[in-house]
Design a protein around this nucleic acid. Structure first.
Lengths: 204, 204
DNA sequence: TAGATTGTTAATCGATTAACAATC
DNA sequence: TAGATTGTTAATCGATTAACAATC
């Protein structure tokens, strides 16, 4: 399923999607790349190029049918393909992610959680059961997730990553401030919240 | 304080920093750009160029003194300049961020929180007081933050952003899936957690 | 038809990589 | 000195923007 879209374009698709979904009403039945560009503060050719990857066809003079465009982006991003995910690390952040509804918009469901704190194991958080990290392998067999979210301390992240990859997880979203190493073919993305705030501060 | 470092290089500095801090011991007194590059899976010239922005001087044949390099990156990123931040939106994510210790590494301290839920107003979360959103202006006068974290629902994010900017906040880290508009000179960065997971899924 | 907008091709811009001189 | 590594200049690569033909 590897496509020839630049990653940077791929990253912008959710931005377009959010904007398009935020609109409604008859006056927004059609939308032009120019209007999107103005709203999001980017170039209109860039918008058209990005949208072209989703194979949605705009019509000269009128623009894109908003609902069709939404559908095309969602299809392209795989929002309609249901995917299971597991979460490792039920700390403050993990807890928040388990309760976060936003993943459903993209077709992902966090089905199980794992932690090594005996006080947490066996409990439920936002309706999801928390298992022991040792059961990670078994859990992955049980719910067959393609994705995993790592929200453990930095020191534990690589070993968790190894377990996940070994068990067959193909994509990992990592919140620990470490660069995870995984075999080729496994997609890893990192979100370092503190670093993001620091970057803002140093741009002022 | 606007410097001529490309934003993409700036984004990598915390990655180097985390890696360098993860090392210890006498055998890691010196480190070369090549070693960093291998560890992080990037080009060594890129590493040297990025590090050059922090004005840290490497020595031919030996490399960089690890502790000096850490100090130079931290200085460059402004980790030593203490900055106050406020958080708006004490939901699951906001709560997690209030309890997160990682911001301190970069010299930022979340000092106050704001929410519009009467049940939360007046409480403390991780030792930080929660005020009413209406008091945002007064709160900003009180603690003089340069930074703010927005963790409110998408529908409320823009109006919160407007309030923050009006009150003089210069940088905003936004977790709501909306593109915030702010006057020029205000730095806004967005973290869309769900979108990040979707991007991973669509890269598989 | 005229005008607005798309989609594409060519030009530009910026970031990465390659080559290499400097140096400890 | 020889060798390893830095820092910089030139070449390459990829992404954005500009120009423009196609079309509704």
């Amino acid at each position: 399923m590897t496509r020839d879209i630049p990653e940077i374009s791929l990253q912008r698709l959710p931005v377009y999607l959010n904007y398009l979904k935020s609109l409604s009403g008859d006056e927004n039945k059609y939308i032009s790349s120019g209007a999107i560009a103005v709203a999001l503060g980017m170039g209109e050719v860039l918008v058209r190029k990005d949208l072209a990857y989703t194979s949605s066809a705009g019509r000269p003079k009128v623009g894109y049918v908003r609902t069709e465009l939404i559908a095309a982006i969602e299809e392209y991003l795989g929002c309609n393909a249901k995917k299971n995910a597991v979460l490792v690390g039920v700390g403050g952040l993990g807890r928040a992610l388990l309760g976060y509804g936003g993943f459903a918009n993209y077709g992902t469901d966090i089905v199980e959680a794992f932690d090594n704190d005996p006080a947490k194991i066996g409990t439920q958080v936002s309706g999801k059961k928390v298992y022991a990290v040792e059961e990670l392998g078994a859990g992955i067999v049980r719910c067959n997730p393609t994705l995993a979210i790592v929200a453990v301390p930095a020191a534990a992240a690589q070993s968790v990553c190894d377990m996940l990859v070994k068990a067959g997880v193909k994509g990992i979203l990592n919140f620990a401030p470490v660069q995870l190493k995984a075999e080729q073919g496994v997609v890893v993305r990192n979100i370092d919240v503190a670093a993001n705030l620091a970057i803002i501060a140093s741009m002022l």
